[in-house]
Design a protein around this nucleic acid. Structure first.
Lengths: 198, 198
DNA sequence: TATTTACAAACCAACGGTCGGTTTTTATAA
DNA sequence: TTATAAAAACCGACCGTTGGTTTGTAAATA
């Protein structure tokens, strides 16, 4: 089973290199040459693992999706005590306050600009559906433990929540001066949304 | 003044051709060759008017921004009777229910994927600021005419509204099956948001 | 008449992607 | 165990397209 090991090792190297480069240069600026030089792999090797450059970004998004899944699940469990805490965590991870090494925003925006490609369309669809599902579960759990009013409609609210997070991702990609930034606290926004709903 | 006339004529031709092609093929698939063939202009001529291909997209967005500006202002005036009507109009224009010839979503998503370029960053910033300003004015006007509760915070609500519209734009770019689409009526969403706020 | 503008088209570098070939690993059977 | 066929991992020269440049020319303007 040495071949399988090598395969995993190489794909790991590839993904890590790519994420590094995205962080440094951005999705568009990163070239195949960059990946070759940084990883030490040849062009042929890379294209042996991946069908196109764009598919690499799909990989990155999907891997991040897995991570988010487990992370979110943990937060949801936290949600039995308070619904604000998971919200804050999630908002922070989106806004990259602390972990600026997360490339989800960049990759997501990049892929959205190429949604006409079938592979990308599928990945985006997966991403959206997963986001909706996670949000719904978070609300339902909160309701079960009594921290979110039972009157709240999970579907409707999850929809709104996902729209807001997508909006957040977009806005965080727009370079704004301190003067032009009129954003407000995301957590309190969600709090209002959940509690005011009769 | 014949030169000025020719200039305007050519730029008009360029912009219209580009918008047509974006509608047909998407931003990424559209090539310079396409623009040349369709418009009849040579490569040299096009690059005489525009510094780069990306700058064309900035043009398109800015032109659309002007249109939106006047359109929104009209809707705001309508808002003295009801705040739902302008909302519905705006949501429809975003979701492209009727006017599928609008390329704003595509262009916006394309530009967001390249926000590291200074020219694009500036355009995006303008777009965001304008959106915020328009939303704020809409709320303030609604309050003046008594159709929006005075208790609503214009800044905070405008922020949320813009985030939602950005989210809408993103979601409308994700190809979803009827089964996976769990979206709800945008207008009623905004209604809830505005009226429930104490 | 001099200069700037509008346009043309040959040219270029860089990019993503392909292809034929080599080496290494795995599977098969004598 | 060993011989061998097959497949996977990997390499790097090569290719077509693409966005962009440059050089040149004709028309408009000053």
């Amino acid at each position: 089973m040495k071949q399988e090991e090598r395969r995993q090792q190489t794909t790991r190297l590839l993904l890590d290199t790519v994420k590094e480069l995205i962080r440094e240069k951005g999705c568009h600026a990163m070239t195949m040459k960059d990946i070759m030089d940084r990883s030490g792999l040849s062009k042929g090797a890379i294209f042996h693992y991946v069908k196109s450059k764009d598919e690499i970004f799909v990989w990155v998004l999907q891997e991040r999706l897995e991570e988010t899944n487990t992370q979110f699940m943990n937060e949801v469990e936290l949600g039995r005590r308070s619904f604000e805490e998971p919200m804050r965590k999630i908002a922070e991870s989106i806004l990259q306050y602390e972990n600026a090494q997360d490339v989800t925003n960049k990759v997501l925006l990049y892929l959205l600009g190429k949604e006409d490609q079938p592979v990308i369309a599928e990945a985006l669809q997966q991403y959206y559906e997963r986001s909706m599902e996670l949000s719904r579960q978070w609300i339902v759990t909160g309701q079960r433990y009594g921290v979110i009013p039972a009157s709240v409609d999970p579907d409707k609210t999850a929809d709104m929540f996902v729209l807001l997070t997508l909006g957040l991702r977009v806005r965080s990609s727009i370079p704004l001066t301190a003067a032009s930034f009129k954003g407000h606290d995301f957590t309190s926004m969600i709090s209002d949304m959940l509690q005011s709903r009769k």
